[in-house]
């Protein structure tokens, strides 16, 4: 291979790699403002925290009670994960959820159903390997009598880096 060609190829490879890794999706700036959450955001924030606490504490019965019978999880580039399989995986001893957050929630109230979108930073390990990061979650909750049950979840990992932010409240800050 001629050396000038090798040089050009290498330069092009470097340029393309730098360009590809430096790209961030164009998104609106986060304005520094403090919101008054809607009633639904308050309700579903509490439910999502309750659900994550059940995972953290390995409370299978408590977690199961919050899910519909046909609960399933969808992820990009993967087959649908049935609810039972997910339960088994998060209840396994080698899955440890250390910390989590629920952020930037919005709720579309559809009467007997609600579409809940939020950002979920978490610190976790699976079989001793870090499973931490920032996840974008879309949940479909359905009304079941007086309670809400999680029917379907779409989850996608945004980043393997856990973003900094306010920690969980203790009630006595």
């Amino acid at each position: 291979m001629p050396s000038y060609f090798r040089g050009s190829l290498l330069s092009a490879l470097i340029a393309v790699t730098i360009f590809a890794t430096a790209q961030e999706p164009v998104k609106p700036k986060l304005n520094p403002r403090i919101i008054t959450a809607t009633r639904q955001v308050t309700i579903f924030s509490n439910l999502e925290i309750q659900l994550l606490e059940a995972v953290r504490k390995k409370d299978k019965a408590g977690l199961q009670a919050m899910l519909t019978d046909d609960f399933a999880i969808d992820m990009p580039n993967a087959d649908r994960l049935p609810g039972d399989d997910w339960l088994d995986s998060v209840m396994a001893k080698d899955y440890i959820l250390k910390n989590f957050g629920v952020r930037q929630m919005s709720v579309a109230d559809l009467g007997n159903a609600a579409v809940v979108k939020f950002d979920r930073p978490q610190e976790a390990t699976h079989k001793g390997i870090a499973d931490s990061g920032d996840f974008f979650v879309v949940d479909l909750w359905k009304k079941d009598g007086d309670t809400w049950k999680l029917a379907n979840r779409y989850v996608s990992k945004v980043s393997s880096v856990v973003p900094k932010g306010p920690s969980k409240p203790t009630g006595k800050e």
């Binding site: 986060l30 304005n31 520094p32 403002r33 403090i34 919101i35 959450a37 957050g101 629920v102 952020r103 930037q104 929630m105 950002d119 980043s159 880096v161 973003p163 900094k164 932010g165 306010p166």
Partner: peptide, 20 residues
């Protein structure tokens, strides 16, 4: 991604778990 604040600034919550 970590949203580090420049000198003389500090990160504050946006009320929704994010910071600026």
């Amino acid at each position: 991604r970590e949203g580090s604040a420049p000198d003389g600034m500090k990160n504050v919550p946006n009320g929704d778990g994010s910071a600026a």
